[in-house]
Amino acid sequence: MNFKFGLFFGLTVIFAGQALADKPVEAPGGKFAKEAEQMFRTSFRADNPKYWMTRLEQDETMKTCLQFRDNPPRKVGEKLEKLNAATIRYPVDGKLIGDWKEGEKLAAVGTGGHIGFIQPDPAGRVRGGNCYACHELAKKEIAYGTIGPSLREFGKIRGKDEDTIKYVYDKIYNSNAFTACTNMPRFGLHSWLTPEQITHIVAFLIDPESPVNKD
């Protein structure tokens, strides 16, 4: 009797615990989310150029990721992934692997795209992929970040077949086509990098001659 009761009680606790774990996390801002959005959007000088202000707009992916703290339920994530996959565009000549030397330069550049009245980038400042901010790549560059996985010897490990090349291109163009709400920017979608620039970074990752794949 005691044993049965104990078992029942134990299972109840386990199920209750699971139910709690499944309960969706409250969206950031809770019941003040709308008001917070309003507050944020009215925090800026009226003389900001329109083009700058468009950077505060959120597409469906951004809105959904915010709502789920970047951890959407799988069904929602799949929907976003489809949506993002449909945005990918390719270079006119169809060649997805470019020059690793150009890719190496782009991977190191973290400047460009800063706006504002205090410390904007000068006009024409080179924009790069800033890959090293988050990833380990070539062995000789030790100042790499760890927000993303190490991509050291990526081509050596993953090979250079067509599918891999296309995967890498697609991932850089729109990372959310594979993992909704990933930390990685969508470089192609936002035209941060051109399709040609993306092919160079693909080469930097995959080309056997690239320092990414050398000891």
């Binding site: 950077r55 505060l56 707009e57 959120q58 951004m62 990721c65 915010l66 970047d70 936002h190």
Partner: peptide, 9 residues
């Protein structure tokens, strides 16, 4: 803190 936007998401 969680609000995503801009050309780098």
């Amino acid at each position: 803190f969680y609000r995503r936007s801009g050309p780098q998401d």
